[in-house]
Amino acid sequence: MLRDITLGQYYRADSVLHRLDPRVKLVATFMFIISLFIVKNFIGYIIAALFLVTGIALSKVPPKFIFRGMKAIFFLLFITMLFNLFLTPGKELVSFWKITITYEGIKMAVMMAIRLVFLITGSSLMTLTTTPNNLTDGLESLLRPLKAIRVPVHEISMMMSIALRFIPILMEETDKIMKAQMARGADFESGSIIKRAKSLVPLLVPLFISAFRRANDLAMAMEARCYRGGDGRTKMKPLIYAKTDYMAYAAIVLYLVLIVVFGRILF
């Protein structure tokens, strides 16, 4: 059940997208997310969808795997749609009791849903094709200019890579603890909200204890290898752009131009 959340999980495969420099993928994802919010009409979304579908096809990640992550945000999606549907003022379409549905409301709800779905899919695609280590390497290198204004870039990226690294481990552990407690008759799925919240105690206590223990062990292991922060630290595999990376940048620029022209200016 917990395995369903794909965000932050790497899918091992050999594809163009997997081999791409993480910086390119980060920039692409960032641009993609921005593009979703500047688009004003459905033609723009069609272009975004094409971009996304191309990405998915290139990634060799089975679509089923990508959309599995969607289940987790379904509730959020539903609530967002409802609010937009009922609370947007505009030309009235249907009205009963105190609820009115407007033309603008429907448009907003659909757009919001598309945005959210694309946003999650896009960022899932990035984390599915990039190992956490690569991702934070890319982030560190992209944020390096901020060091001039004393932002602890290395520390932030190290924290992120540790956090990302631990997501699957803790997820697996949660699964095991759940099973161990279910074997003792614990019930996580039925009962009132209060009862269900209470039933999480036998899950959370062992999980927290194990997380603290792991953090402690990791700190020890890092210190044993003389870790002392980012100053003067070199990389075994420094990030170097290849030809495909420049091509990918070109594709991103092309995409942005198309989005701005068709999604905002022309229509």
């Binding site: 552990e173 095991k176 603890i177 099973k179 161990a180 407690q181 279910m182 074997a183 003792r184 008759g185 019930d187 105690v201 036998p202 206590v205 062992p206 204890i209 194990s210």
Partner: peptide, 20 residues
């Protein structure tokens, strides 16, 4: 299933996974 789990008791490998 609940009554089954009472009849077929399973102790997992690490006690840390169940003590709370």
């Amino acid at each position: 299933k609940k009554s089954l789990r009472a009849k077929v008791g399973l102790v997992f490998q690490y006690p840390e996974h169940q003590l709370f």
